[in-house]
Write a protein that binds this DNA or RNA. Structure first.
Ligand code: MN
Ligand code: MN
Ligand code: ZN
Ligand code: ZN
Lengths: 141, 141
DNA sequence: GTGTTACATTAGATTTAGTCCAAATAGTCT
DNA sequence: AGACTATTTGGACTAAATCTAATGTAACAC
């Protein structure tokens, strides 16, 4: 994602493009690894400009709220984040907790009857199992 | 869920039916509210037999591992639990974090190609938006 | 420009959710 | 009964995230 594109999307969402905010976006845009808040905090602080822990969390919260970033809750582990670019599904490893992208495909929506008066914003499909690294080795089991 | 049924399912999973364990299962079976661990802990301790916090968490972990109970991670909030009875999807409210059951319907699996060497255990479909209580009132917006 | 205001950042304290530990208890088996 | 194993327990501990109050910075009005 280009510098200008990040700037644009921040301003479109009514968020100032501060160095700290930009750094979070740039790091997420460059990463396909669904980092945790702490990982983002550390990565951003390996070089200038610095960003405090509170700011990193604040910015992640704002970016999620603006719809630019997605937060993925993983049971028993820290939340992970990714930038909302191309639509995709997620695979979460039972064993190591890693979150991986799965190519998007369409899923049928629920019947209006089943939703009642709820207001639907999005459907999220999550696959669970063992990632390539954690899958049982060939003959075993 | 009947007393005997709970006993059965525990024993089938190789777990002793202790009073504390039973109490967790019985509470979950009777509740449709996806309680948090703390709520379960408090509910179980409103009457005998008592169960410590550590035991409640231990038992929830064991029950999830045995596949009898499901843990639902909710971003920014405590995990919630429900008993694995009839298959169903979940609706999570953006506003209040409540988890509600949505009638089951089948969803297409991903292409084998998209999964690669990963081992798929299950697909989970989560709907997000505003629950009935938090939905914007009629004319507004 | 100067002043005003709203938005952002910061360090550190605090809270929340959950885990760990070592000792005590209670089943199960022979 | 005695040995063995699973389970429970209180309390210390940890990790993740939020809160607070002070400070800094950018946009807007004049
Ligand atoms: Mn992703
Ligand atoms: Mn449910
Ligand atoms: Zn894995
Ligand atoms: Zn709600």
């Amino acid at each position: 994602m280009a510098v200008a594109a990040i700037k644009q999307s921040l301003e479109n969402s009514g968020l100032r493009c501060t160095p700290q905010r930009y750094a979070v976006m740039a790091f997420l845009a460059a990463s396909h690894r669904h980092p945790t808040a702490v990982e983002i905090f550390e990565a951003v602080n390996r070089v200038d400009p610095r960003s405090s822990r509170a700011t990193t969390y604040n910015n992640l919260r704002d970016l999620v709220q603006a719809g630019l970033v997605r937060e993925v809750a993983v049971e028993g582990r820290a939340a992970r984040f990714d930038i909302k670019g191309l639509r995709h599904h997620h695979f979460i490893c039972d064993h190591c907790g890693n979150v991986e992208d799965i190519e998007w495909y369409n899923i049928p929506r629920p019947a209006a009857r089943a939703l009642g008066k709820r207001v639907l914003r999005e459907c999220e499909l999550i696959f669970r199992g063992r990632c390539t690294k954690c899958a049982p080795r060939k003959a075993s089991r």
